[in-house]
Design a protein around this nucleic acid. Structure first.
Length: 454
RNA sequence: GGGCAGGUGGCAGAGAGGUUAUGCGCGGGACUGCAGAUCCCGUUUACUCGGGUUCGAAUCCCGACCUGCCCUCCA
């Protein structure tokens, strides 16, 4: 199998990827806390890991992707109270909408999409295990993780406990022994959703659910754990502490973090309020354009979002689409395409180097330029090649039933041709404009009028 | 104050010791009723700054400056 390299946040190095079990990959990606609709930031993480997963599968790995949904947490409770809704019902509504939004971006669903509220047993027994090992203590119905007991605390975010204490703005909480200790379990306050536990009714802290659910579905050591870069501290740091305190084994072999999306040089986030919602974007741009936009950046770098960038990606998509449609029409006979193999290698090499999608796209686009004028068997080979690559990228226009379409289109184009020959350009242009509004683009060329969908 | 990313041509954005990234945009030409698409040509010394290592650095080392993120919920 092809060698691939992954940049790991913990070691800060790019290392050859070696899964725990040969040929299999257990991957866990932190999903959203669902109290609002998904925005571009969520989409970037989902799309990048979608592509990484597809790439690993393309290479022949058996990938188990687990991506959770946090459906109980302070934010949810507060929002629901503001809106006068039931917190769990509200969280589940937004969870469904989140999945729908990601579907619309052609993100393939994870194999398992666990919710915190459905895994109380696992969560509670993990907390118990951590307590039994002496890393956590109960205090007034809450359970806290004792940061000082875990010697590796800070290894992911590369800071030491003393440094965190220094500039810290940490909430004062008398129940904690050390201000840096974090909650594994929170005692229920009046009117809050709660679950029974050995420490009384309450709910899990944010960090523990990911440890519990990832271990439940993948095992005690994950091959890859990912999420947005803003989760490095404290979320992922705490996950390491909890999990390793419980099992005594390394929790994760490769930590991958996707750079944040910015808008006008500021982080895009719900709290700042400068978010672009996926549901609004997909009304104006096709999903392929949105995927291309992210594929055209390096996943670890921050991404500066702008509608101008998106419009550029839209242009790119049209270009790819045009060439692809042309190849479809020009292909015949036995597929044969020597340059395809060359480009496939280039693209897979780029992806093998820490999933460098931008470099891969550069090769892809170079190939598109080359493929413009292919015909016959070569065109057929190119179509097959692009479809193969699409198992990874999913950026080609969707194939549709073209039987009736073809007949209707040739009728319409025939009418337009007659109008043109009679110099009735007002009607000819009206037909072209109307088709354009329907998402069908036509071009007058030497070989006659061609059409394709955008 | 501490930690982590970065600073590349008009713009977006790769690369990481010596060879054209790529795409967009812009200018010119071909084609066209027009538009778009396509084709050809062009956009001449791009790599924050200052030192250093080297035969050779955008790429390595040291220092400075700037930007963003994290240190509080956040993908």
């Amino acid at each position: 199998m092809r060698r691939i390299y992954i940049h790991d946040t913990l070691s800060g190095e790019k290392r050859e990827f070696r899964p725990v079990h040969e040929g299999r990959v257990g991957m866990y990606v932190c999903g959203p806390t669902t109290y609002d609709y998904a925005h571009v930031g969520h989409a970037r993480v989902a799309i990048m890991f979608d592509v990484f997963r597809r790439f690993l599968e393309y290479l022949g790995y058996d990938v188990l992707l687990v991506s959770n949904i946090t459906d109980i947490d302070d934010k949810i409770i507060n929002k629901a109270r503001e809106r006068g809704m039931d917190p769990i019902e509200m969280a589940h509504y937004y969870a469904r909408e989140y999945l729908r939004d990601m579907d619309s971006l052609r993100v393939r669903r994870a194999n398992v999409i666990p919710k915190a509220t459905r895994h109380m047993e696992e969560i509670i027994s993990l907390i118990q295990r951590i307590m039994d090992n002496g890393y956590a203590y109960e205090s007034g119905g809450d359970v806290y993780f004792s940061v000082e007991k875990f010697s590796g605390y800070g290894k992911l975010s590369h800071r030491r406990i003393e440094e965190m204490m220094a500039g810290a703005r940490i909430e004062v909480n008398e129940k904690k022994r050390n201000p840096l200790d974090f909650a594994l379990w929170k005692a229920a306050k009046e009117g809050e959703p709660s679950w029974p536990s050995p420490w009384g009714p309450g709910r899990p802290g944010w960090h523990i659910e990911c440890s519990a659910m990832s271990m439940r579905y993948i095992g005690e050591t994950l091959d890859i754990h990912g999420g947005g870069a803003d989760l490095i501290f404290p979320h992922h740091e705490n996950e390491i502490a909890q999990s390793e305190a419980a099992t005594g084994k390394p929790f994760v072999n490769y930590w991958m973090h996707v750079g944040l999306v910015r808008f006008e040089s500021e982080k895009m986030s719900k709290s700042i309020g400068n978010v672009f919602l996926i549901r609004d974007l997909v009304k104006k741009y096709p999903p392929e354009a949105i995927r291309l936009m992210f594929l055209n950046s390096h996943y670890r770098k921050p991404y500066e979002f702008s509608e101008k960038n998106l419009a550029e990606s839209m242009h790119l998509f049209e270009k790819i689409s045009t060439v692809y449609q042309r190849l479809l029409k020009n292909s015949s006979g036995e597929p044969s395409c020597e340059v395809c193999d060359e480009y496939e290698n280039k693209i897979l090499d780029a992806l093998s180097d820490d999933f460098n999608t931008r470099a891969a796209m550069a090769h892809y686009l170079e190939f598109i330029g080359l493929a413009r004028n292919m015909e016959g068997g070569e065109a057929k080979g190119a179509v097959e090649f692009l479809r193969r690559m699409d198992e990874i990228f999913d950026i080609l226009p969707r194939k549709r039933d073209e039987g009736l379409d073809e007949k209707l289109m040739s009728l319409i184009l025939e009418i337009r041709a007659r109008m043109r020959s009679e110099r009735r350009y007002d009607i000819a242009d009206w037909i072209r404009d109307t088709l354009g509004e329907l998402g069908i683009k036509i071009e007058d060329t030497k070989e006659g009028t061609k059409w394709y969908r955008v």
